[in-house]
Structures are given as structure tokens and as C-alpha cells.
């Protein structure tokens, strides 16, 4: 029997500290995409609420409760992370564990680094803690969530992990070089 070794998407690439930012991989735990069927949004939100204490997030928002998080990732779609998906009759639930690469970028210059890559105003006055957006990072589609005053969580598809690390480290290097 083959002995399989689990590798995370950014295995061997992260963490890295460049100038005033640290880029590190995050293990999101189980990830489930939840897509409520037509007209079932409310029922799915209530079922989530009673099972995990968090609802279905509104567009551009994320919620967390204990270790579980729900992040809006598109029209009629959210990702439940860090908790097993409860039985939801009114929604399509797809296990996407291991399909996403999740990276956190933390530091005084995190906003400046992302400003070089993301065509969106991510400053704290516009993009507050818990806010999330589907947008571009370089040429990749990505999900960006503010996880703290100086911290962002970036998610891309697993196949793009290496490109994500390259884009982030190159931008961080450029920001650091300017002092």
C-alpha cells in the first residue's frame, strides 16, 4: 500500500517575511461550497444559523463563529471553512477541501503590497474587517478578505498557488525596496 504524504498548496514556498510584511499559508480545514437553490436563501441561512451559529453571508461579507467561517465568494455562493457542513436540504454543497490555497499577508505594508496587485481600494476606510471581495490579484481571480487591522487573507485555486506566492513576494520586494 502506497504511503501518501499530504502536501499543502504552498508547501516549501511559505512562510516568507519581506520588509514589513509576512506571508504565510493558512490551513482552512474542511472547505465546503454552499449554493442555495432558487428561493432557498433564507431557509439555508437559518439552517446554518441553528447548526453553526453563523448565517449565509451577504455579498462582500464574511462571518465567523468559533472556528467556523462563512465567506461570500460569488452570486449565490459562499464557502464554509473550518467546520463540517451541516445537512442543508435547500442547497448544493460541494466539498472543496484541498482545492483552495489560502494565504495570509500581515504587516504594516500589507495594504501597499496588495495595492500593486488588486484593482480595488482595500484601505481600512473602505474595506473593513470581515469585508470580502472577489477580484483580481495580478491576472488571477482571487478572493480577498480583511482579517485584521494589518492583515488580509487571500484565496486562489490550488493550481495557482505558486503564481500567487510569486506575485505576492515580488510585490512585497518592490514595496520594501522603496523603503
Amino acid at each position: 500500500m502506497a504511503n501518501l504524504v499530504a502536501l499543502s498548496p504552498c508547501e516549501g514556498l511559505l512562510p516568507q517575511t519581506i520588509g514589513a510584511v509576512t506571508i504565510a499559508e493558512i490551513d482552512p480545514g474542511p472547505v465546503t461550497a454552499i449554493l442555495p437553490f432558487k428561493g432557498q436563501d433564507k431557509a439555508v441561512g437559518e439552517a446554518l444559523k441553528s447548526a453553526l451559529g453563523l448565517g449565509f453571508p451577504a455579498p462582500g461579507r464574511s462571518q465567523s463563529k468559533g472556528g467556523a467561517r462563512a465567506i461570500w465568494v460569488g452570486k449565490g455562493e459562499a464557502l464554509l471553512m473550518g467546520a463540517a457542513c451541516p445537512d442543508l436540504a435547500g442547497a448544493a454543497c460541494v466539498d472543496q477541501s484541498d482545492a483552495w490555497c489560502v494565504v495570509e499577508i500581515v504587516g504594516d505594508r500589507a495594504e501597499d503590497v496588495l495595492a500593486r496587485l488588486v484593482p480595488l481600494d482595500l484601505r481600512a476606510s473602505q474595506f473593513k474587517r470581515g469585508h470580502t471581495a472577489r477580484t483580481l490579484l495580478g491576472r488571477m481571480t482571487a478572493s480577498a478578505t480583511r482579517s485584521g487591522a494589518k492583515a488580509f487573507e487571500i484565496m486562489v485555486f490550488r493550481s495557482m498557488a505558486e503564481t500567487l506566492v510569486e506575485e505576492l513576494t515580488r510585490a512585497a520586494g518592490a514595496v520594501a525596496a522603496r523603503g
Binding site: P59, G60, K75, P119, L120, A133, R134, T135, L136
Partner: peptide
């Protein structure tokens, strides 16, 4: 209408 004003690139 869902995301707000966004760049054409998206």
C-alpha cells in the same frame, strides 16, 4: 449591482 463599482479588467 452586487459588488459595487469595479474596474473593467474584472
Amino acid at each position: 449591482p452586487i459588488c459595487g463599482t469595479r474596474d473593467r479588467r474584472e
